[in-house]
Amino acid sequence: MKIIHAIVLLGLVFFSANLIVADDDKDKKEATPEVRLQAAKEAMSTHTNIAILYVKGLVCPSCGIGVSKNLSRMKGVDKKRFKRGIEMDVKTQLVKIALNGKTGLDKKDILERVDDAGFVAIEEYKLHDDHLDVHRFGAGASTEVIHHLKK
């Protein structure tokens, strides 16, 4: 019986220690803007005709399922690519959306769908000629370009 108690104690210590250590762990923080930008650039060069969003707090795959489901139902999403049109990366908080046309997605709709899933969409990454623009969402689905980089 003492052995079993020791196993329980070890289990608790192991999991608790991970949580405590995680305070200093970079993985616990969201990716830096530079890391996200680099990831977005790579995704844009790997995939064609996609939209990329930065969703704050999207750090766990299971709690982000609503984001995936809600965005997947948007008009203009190519469900044959990625996972029903959506690919989430909890390490960079980026959401890739496969598009089936050139018109893009309705920004207000994006914001509402992400908000409805319990998160906040902060930025959208867009290819503009050979440049990568970062559009920050503002009030009333307005956007402001905060980065303009050569791809």
Partner: peptide, 8 residues
């Protein structure tokens, strides 16, 4: 809460 690695 959850992080990318842990759940509490």
């Amino acid at each position: 809460f959850e992080t990318s690695q842990f759940y509490f």
